[in-house]
Computed example of a mutant assay.
Amino acid sequence: MKTITRNLFTLILIGFISTSIIAQEKEKKNKKSPAEERAEIDKMTSKALAELYKVQPQARNEIANSKGYAVFGNFGMNLFLLSTANGAGKAVSGGKATYMKMYSAGVGVGIGVKKFNGIFIFKTTKAYQNFIEEGWQGGGQADAAAKDNKQGGAVAGAISISPDITFYQVTNKGLAAQATIQGTKYWKDKDLN
């Protein structure tokens, strides 16, 4: 009985903390002008790409030769069986940026909070256009084995979502060992475009 009570208390506490964090993020966002929000997303995009290029140098050429790319800053939580993430980013093609939002929900065992960046690389104009015009919803989970150069071995950090889209997930520790796009929806941010 003590274990159940302790687990329930922990769940309530985590729920309270996560709700508080989300409320603080929304409050911060509400105080910013659209220009400030765009500038913040632009800064996050530059930082995320720099991190990606550091751990996966060939990604620079992939993006340079692509029809477009998209970068999202995400905040994810996993509470026992429920995992969620939300964030913002932008899609870029031919120098034109489209600002977007994302949200995901899924099932996953564990407890934790993490910040990460998701970077999509589009090999065709059609794949890019579908992403920004129709939104996109990831319905599966993709895993990638990722190792840093210090540990040796092959780096397989890119995940092929489809023949036309490659995805990287970068955390503060480098490439994610598991990149998840399960139940994630992306759409244009009407306030920033």
Rank of each mutant, 00 (worst) to 15 (best):
A154G: 14
G95L: 00
K115L: 12
G89I: 08
T5C: 06
I165P: 03
N172E: 11
L8N: 10
S20P: 01
N149R: 14
S18L: 08
N86H: 02
G183I: 02
T166V: 08
G152C: 13
A142L: 14
K173F: 10
F16H: 11
R6G: 02
A50C: 06
I165M: 06
F80W: 03
G139A: 14
G108H: 08
I119M: 03
I17H: 00
W136V: 07
K126D: 07
F116I: 02
T84K: 01
A64Y: 07
P57K: 09
E134D: 15
E134F: 11
N7L: 03
Y69K: 10
T45I: 09
W187M: 10
G76H: 07
N117Q: 12
A48R: 01
P34A: 07
A176T: 02
A179R: 04
G140H: 13
L82S: 02
K150H: 11
A176V: 06
A176E: 03
V109A: 07
Y186C: 04
F80Y: 03
G140C: 13
T124R: 05
A70T: 09
A48N: 03
T125D: 11
P34S: 03
K31L: 00
V155Q: 15
S33E: 02
G174P: 00
K114L: 14
Y103N: 15
L175T: 01
Q137C: 11
G118P: 09
K188H: 10
Q58D: 08
P34W: 01
G138R: 11
K188P: 09
Q24V: 08
